[in-house]
Write a protein that binds this DNA or RNA. Structure first.
Lengths: 184, 184
DNA sequence: CAACATGGTATATTATAGCATACGTTCAAT
DNA sequence: ATTGAACGTATGCTATAATATACCATGTTG
């Protein structure tokens, strides 16, 4: 009894655009009227069979029900996010945008205290990362290859190997980190 | 207790590609191990919340779970399809490919007996149709505009208006009809 | 061989998706 | 007003999605 998605809003938008009543959609899709209403109101999380029946009945792609409609702006305040703290408190990662199956991207704001060493295991094939250095210096280790990045420098690398984010220096380091997951 | 989709196969493929056990996927996705197993075996039609949790946990787009993997050939025998009979038996429409939310296309093989008149109401905006004349002649009426098509001729038109498929001639007419629904 | 893990399945129970029916609006028509 | 249709919502019930637990294979390790 909880909607995790914008399916309801999308369905209602599509239905009103097509100028259909719940009864008509019910007849077209062979899904009961109360169920359609509950989905629209976000009171039910439909099964994929139901979703499929709706898509077939309305002659629409599934994506139009699963993807959000409005590409409205989304402003995220770093302070509003709770940090993931690791490496004895020397690393604080703020998930700005968590993974979203419609975008396949993660964005973190990461603070590495002086002396912080963080090693991440290899992602699966096709995963690509970007590192933007905002403040201080960072020593990246990509599969045994060491790369020093300074403020205002950016790195892109294939993250399907072991990789480390180290700050062996005496001042803190701040970076943005983007992780791209392959669409397939 | 019936799977309408290839979700199960896709999930199993992705899981084995990533070399994960059901236990590991369960831990990553916060979906129970038996449920994952049932989905893979096609014994359960997951809700979109569950599907979403799986997609987030495995860092994959939803489409990779909903779209079929292999673009293998699909041969359809017209004889194997049951005709939709209308207009007092003068029109027989064989749905070669029914609407599929992943493709947004319908394909019909249609036989119009001599004297058959069939009028279809307007589709919603963006729907486009093609007519391939295989045998005989057809008189198409697109929003009051009359078009005569002969054998080996093809027509494309915007189907968001009333349109008719008429055979005022003395010999039967056979066409293929494709209907494209807009992706958005 | 025992002992133990590991990966997948069966069993029993709970939560909820989905349905049929009935209800309360709103609006148009007489 | 009053009937009536059309539309969406609330109610009660059934089917099934989802879980926790226990089970059975297989394969290791001593």
């Amino acid at each position: 009894m909880e909607t995790p998605l914008v399916v309801g809003k999308r369905l209602k938008t599509i239905r009103t655009e097509k100028q259909l009543s719940l009864d008509e959609v019910s007849r077209l899709t062979d899904v009961s009227k109360p169920m359609l209403g509950q989905i629209e109101r976000g009171q039910s999380s439909p099964t994929i069979t139901t979703l499929w029946k709706i898509a077939v009945g309305l002659k629409i792609p599934l994506s139009s029900l699963l993807e959000e409609e409005d590409k409205e702006c989304t402003v995220v305040d770093i302070q509003s996010k709770e940090a993931i703290v690791e490496e004895n408190g020397t690393m604080r990662a703020y998930p700005i945008f968590s993974f979203d199956p419609n975008r396949n991207i993660e964005i973190y704001y990461i603070e590495l205290a002086a002396g912080c060493h963080h090693t991440a295991k290899a992602h699966s094939g096709g995963v690509e990362e970007y590192v933007f250095v905002i403040q201080g210096c960072i020593e990246m280790v990509i599969d045994d290859k060491k790369i020093i990045l300074h403020e205002n420098q950016t790195l892109r690398f294939q993250a399907d190997v072991i990789h480390a984010y180290n700050n062996p220096y005496s001042s803190p380091c701040v970076i943005y980190n983007m992780v791209f997951y392959p669409k397939a």
